[in-house]
Structures are given as C-alpha cells and as structure tokens.
C-alpha cells in the first residue's frame, strides 16, 4: 500500500489539475477573500452600545457585558414596541422554552447579540466570566474569521469530491486500472491503498487554507493550540472521508467526474445554507454534511465547545470506514474493470 500512497502523492504534486485544486485554489481563495474582507472589515470598530429590554428573569443572573445594558420591560409586547421605535436595540424574553430575541434594524448589533445569546448559560450565573466575556465575543472577530471556516469546509468537500472521483476515472483513462488489477495484490488492498493515498492530499488542502489565512490575514480559528489541532483534525478526516465516498461513486461513473461532482458539491454547499448564512440566505436543511461540519467548527472557534467537532470526527471516521469497505467489496467483485 505504501507504493500506492507514494505514487498518488507524486501524481498529486505533478499533475497541474490536482495541484491547482489541492494547493493553489485554497491559497488563492484565501488571498482573494482575505484581501476583499480585510478592506471591508474593521475588527477594531466599536459596535456601539446595546440596550436590551427584557422580561422574564431576575436581573441578578443577567451577564455583565461592557456596552450591553439591560432594562426590564413591563411586557414583551412593550419591549417590542420600544425596539420598533428604535428606543431599544432588541427585546429579550426568557422563559422555560428558552430565550426569545426580537431584534431591531441594526444588523451588526443583531449579529453581536446572536453571538452573545448563544454564549449565555443561565445556570452559570455565579461564574465570574461567561463564554462571552472570556472570548470578548463578536467584538473582535473579523469577517475573515467567519468566512475562513466556511472556506475550508467548501474546499474539503469540493476538493475531496473531485479528487476522490477523479482517481478512479484517471486510472481507467490511463489504462493503468487494468494493469494494477491484474497484479497478485488483492483488489481490496489496492482499493484501501487508494483511499489511504488521500491522506496527504487532505492534509495539504487544510494546511494550504489555514496557514495563509493565519499568517497573512491574521485569521482567528480556535483560541488554543489544542483547539486548532482539533479543528484541523476534523477538517482533515472530513476531507478523507469525502474523498473515499466519491471514490466509491467514481467506480460507477464513466465520464469526467469534474463535470458531475463539482456542480453536485456546489449544490450541496448552497443547500446547506451555512455558507450562505453569513449573507442572510437560509439553507435548505440543517442536516446536510457541510452545514453540520461548519456548525461544529463555529462551535469550537467561537464558543470553545468541542463536542460537535468530536462528533464530526467520529461520524466521518465511520463514513470513511464504511465507504472504504463498500468500495473494496464492489471493486473486488466487479466483473469487468
């Protein structure tokens, strides 16, 4: 299997198409987006004071955040009227069902508020600092900080999809698939070797996106090295599992996969909505893989919560194992290569 990995790696770094999608495209995307967003975003700008009218909770357990004031309203309806009259930034109702937020017209303040309330933990009233206070949430994160995560997700799904499907297609086109299959090595081991050969590619894709964004544009991911390693691991294994799933698809398609896979992955990303959420377009579903992966990444980078990242890693590992085994079985039993 080591020879297959070595062979695939050499092909990756020498084939212009593969090199573009794995290394250049991510770096280019970072440079373009980073430059664009750098000019649009001023991370040090002050959001301004936020006046919240609230109801349904004891004042003492409200978080203390600089620049955010809480005024108790007589009713939620009255608080809403105040918001509509621009007398308050937003109205908040705390109840057993959860937190209901009625936002005003200022979109930047609204985004900050969403971050604030996702970080609020009602039970942690005795802790000196909330997540929000610790992270200085929403105040110093640039647009690139948000988009960078989405960008990596897009690259691992798109790059993984095209690379995975292309591997089998290219082997068939070159005629090398038959030659490889007639060797004494079992077809299953050949297939597993091909899946393992996606390891360097997946690592390169994530590194080529994260590193330039951090070094050149000062993008922030997780707050700690451990957090960033976890983030990297998640994207890495999601990338390989995507390659593996699409390699399985590649066993069946006879046309150039780029023409088929690329639009399909674009559609998946669009329907997932999280890429679009930052531009206020709601996605079609909350359970599509790109959406789930991005949410897990945001949970880690913005809130410091790693549970969803770990879940994403476990699920991706399972998908990787299942698709590899299925692919190996199908490849072994295929009557004609």
């Amino acid at each position: 299997m080591i020879y297959i990995i070595k062979k695939q790696f050499l092909i990756l770094i020498r084939d212009k198409g593969s090199l573009f999608f794995t290394v250049l495209f991510p770096a280019l995307l970072v440079m373009i987006l980073g430059n664009m967003l750098d000019k649009l975003d001023n991370p040090d700008s002050v959001i301004g004071d936020i006046n919240l009218q609230y109801i349904g909770i004891n004042t003492k357990i409200l978080p203390k955040i600089d620049g955010v004031s809480f005024i108790e309203a007589s009713s939620f309806e009255a608080a809403k009227i105040a918001v509509e009259a621009d007398a308050a930034t937003a109205a908040v109702q705390f109840s057993e069902r959860g937190i209901e937020l009625y936002q005003g017209r200022d979109s930047i303040k609204n985004r900050a508020l969403e971050s604030v309330f996702r970080g609020i933990s009602i039970g942690a009233v005795n802790s000196e600092k909330t997540f929000v206070q610790t992270k200085n949430l929403g105040y110093n994160r640039t647009m690139l900080d948000y988009y960078a995560v989405t960008m990596i997700a897009m690259i691992v799904f798109m790059g993984g999809g095209v690379s995975g499907a292309s591997t089998v297609f290219e082997e068939r086109k070159n005629g090398t698939l038959s030659r490889t299959a007639m060797s004494p090595k079992s077809r299953a081991s050949l297939y597993f070797g091909t899946v393992l050969s996606f390891l360097p590619q997946s690592a390169l894709q994530v590194i080529c996106t994260m590193l330039p964004s951090i070094l050149i544009f000062n993008a922030h991911y997780a707050n700690t090295i451990a957090g960033n390693l976890l983030l990297f691991s998640m994207f890495f294994i999601v990338g390989i599992s995507t390659c593996s799933v699409f390699a399985l698809v590649g066993l069946f398609i006879k046309i150039n996969p780029t023409m088929v896979i690329m639009p399909a992955v674009w559609a998946l990303m669009f329907l997932s909505g999280s890429f679009a959420q930052d531009v206020y377009i709601t996605g079609f579903s909350d359970i599509l893989p790109p959406r789930l992966v991005q949410n897990a990444a945001f949970e880690l980078t913005i809130f410091g919560r790693y549970e969803k990242c770990v879940s994403a890693i476990i699920v991706s590992a399972f998908v990787l194992a299942l698709s590899s085994v299925l692919g190996a079985i199908i490849f072994s039993r295929k009557a004609k290569i």
């Binding site: 062979k7 050499l10 092909i11 020498r14 084939d15 070159n174 005629g175 090398t176 038959s178 030659r179």
Partner: peptide, 9 residues
C-alpha cells in the same frame, strides 16, 4: 495494446 502508464511519473 493501449499504453498504460502514469503520464506524470
């Protein structure tokens, strides 16, 4: 019959 090689190797 067909040349079965990896072009970039």
């Amino acid at each position: 019959q067909e040349i079965a090689l990896y072009p970039t190797l």
